[in-house]
């Protein structure tokens, strides 16, 4: 592609523009396909980004949290909690340690046991919430010291349940990447097919132009710019519509964060302009290829 061709594509081509009919079903088809596929591509990208954010949250928010569970006779529990707190505060790699209040523990258990349960009568263990530093403590050594100095104390760094969750999040991310790739490829193919079909509908225009002395380059310019701009306009419309729909999704609290987090954030926004340009790029090359093929059919 020459520099002059790029310039004409961007700034317009007074002679070639307008030679191809601007209206009709075939004209609509390229724009509509491009808009529909851009809509799906944006939705897929936003879902992928949301899955990535979710996976990131799961891996970071719980990565440095741990719990010490202390069980034993009720009379000794307070003393054991104090001993455990002292030990934890003196341990390198522990940022903070805080015993959950009775109210907090009750709130944790109520969803499982229901209201009105005689909480005091149950052998409920006491919990200490621990925040680790980025490097974290030497967990094996800490477990041994807790077992030796605080009977009934168990250090739980959540790795047992966090690991499958992270695996699931990783799987979701991978699925999202595959989905985005497929949708973008499908968008390119759909725009290509629409451009080719539209070109076939304009075969008589190609023939007429050729017979009155138009060169191949002129005919290609006339079709390529028109179809590229249609695909770009359709892609822009689809992208904007998808973003409006995503923004219009009902917001909710933290438990619905996955849904409310569907709109792109940060660098995710940079991917949005790529969608209509991908559609335009697909239309550009497919129209060039299809026009060249159509021209080969006539002398």
């Amino acid at each position: 592609m020459t520099r002059a061709e790029i310039t004409r594509l961007v700034t317009g081509d007074r002679e070639a523009d307008g030679v191809v009919p601007a209206t009709g079903f075939s004209a609509l088809m390229v724009g509509f396909s491009s808009a529909a596929m851009a809509f799906l591509a944006v939705a897929a990208i936003c879902l992928g980004l949301a899955a990535a954010r979710l996976a990131d949250r799961w891996s970071t928010e719980f990565a440095h949290a741990a719990t010490v569970r202390i069980s034993g006779p009720s009379a000794e529990l307070d003393a054991r909690v104090s001993a455990a707190l002292e030990l934890l505060e003196a341990t390198p790699g522990i940022v903070s340690a805080r015993a959950l209040t009775e109210g907090e523990q009750r709130a944790l258990l109520t969803p499982w046991l229901g209201e009105g349960i005689p909480f005091d009568a149950l052998p409920v263990p006491r919990l200490i919430e621990v925040i680790e530093s980025a490097a974290g403590p030497d967990r094996d050594s800490l477990r041994q010291r807790l077992a030796g100095e605080v009977p009934g104390a168990i250090y739980d760094d959540h790795s047992r349940w966090r690991r499958p969750l992270l695996r699931a999040a990783g799987g979701m991310q991978m699925l999202a990447v595959v989905a985005v790739t497929l949708v973008v490829l499908l968008m390119a193919v759909m725009v290509m097919l629409a451009a080719r079909s539209s070109l076939a509908a304009n075969q008589s225009v190609i023939l007429t132009l050729r017979l009155i002395g138009a060169g191949d380059a002129f005919i290609m310019r006339a079709f390529v710019r028109r179809f590229t701009l249609r695909a770009l306009a359709g892609g822009l419309a689809g992208t904007v519509l998808a973003l409006i729909v995503l923004f219009a999704l009902p917001g909710a609290g933290r438990e619905d964060a996955f849904i409310t987090g569907l709109t792109p954030t940060g660098w995710g926004w940079l991917m949005m302009p790529l969608v209509p340009f991908t559609a335009a790029f697909a239309a550009f090359w497919s129209t060039r290829w299809a026009t060249r093929y159509a021209l080969r059919q006539v002398l």
């Binding site: 002679e15 307008g18 030679v19 009919p21 601007a22 209206t23 008589s204 225009v205 023939l207 007429t208 132009l209 017979l211 009155i212 002395g213 138009a214 060169g215 002129f218």
Partner: peptide
């Protein structure tokens, strides 16, 4: 074999238009 979306003047001038004039 006219291009039906162009006016008569545009159709008649087409052979010069495709030359880039």
């Amino acid at each position: 074999q006219f291009l039906d979306h162009l006016t008569l003047v545009e159709n008649v001038g087409l052979p010069l238009r495709v030359l880039g004039r």
